[in-house]
Amino acid sequence: MDINRVLDKKNYQKYVKKNMPKSKFLKECAMAFLVGGLICTLGEALDDFAEYTLFLDEAGIGTFRSAVLIFLGAFFTGIGIYDVLGRYAGAGSIVPITGFANSIVSPALEYKWEGYILGVGAKLFTIAGPVLVYGISASVIAGIVYYIIGVL
């Protein structure tokens, strides 16, 4: 028996796409909105704390908020809770900066048995690397464009 005689590739792919179990889109969106929103609200509270209790300036507030959220993201990844949250929250826990911390810690943790240089040290940047490459490159290009417009 030759499967290719009874099954057409294109039709099969179409059939699979149409009939595969789908995720609950609206529920996923609601969870992402809720969790993402809550993490940002926590960020806002940190801003207030930095401004009114620590009396930091604008740059200080930003750094304080980022550092605390990154710490929380890293810590909850370490104790094995962040991935459980991500299972339900989807982008709600990927997109905030806590998710960035999770993407740094999780490969580093995973590869600690491969040593501290090529394991932890190198894998720390598995996902953070591309983020920095594209983010920094884009900012340099934006800066150059801004400079040129300023000169003109």
Partner: peptide
């Protein structure tokens, strides 16, 4: 600040 925080916290947690 954010980048350094990510690196150091990431490293410490992985340790």
């Amino acid at each position: 600040g954010g980048i350094a925080a990510a690196v150091i916290f990431g490293y410490l947690v992985a340790l």
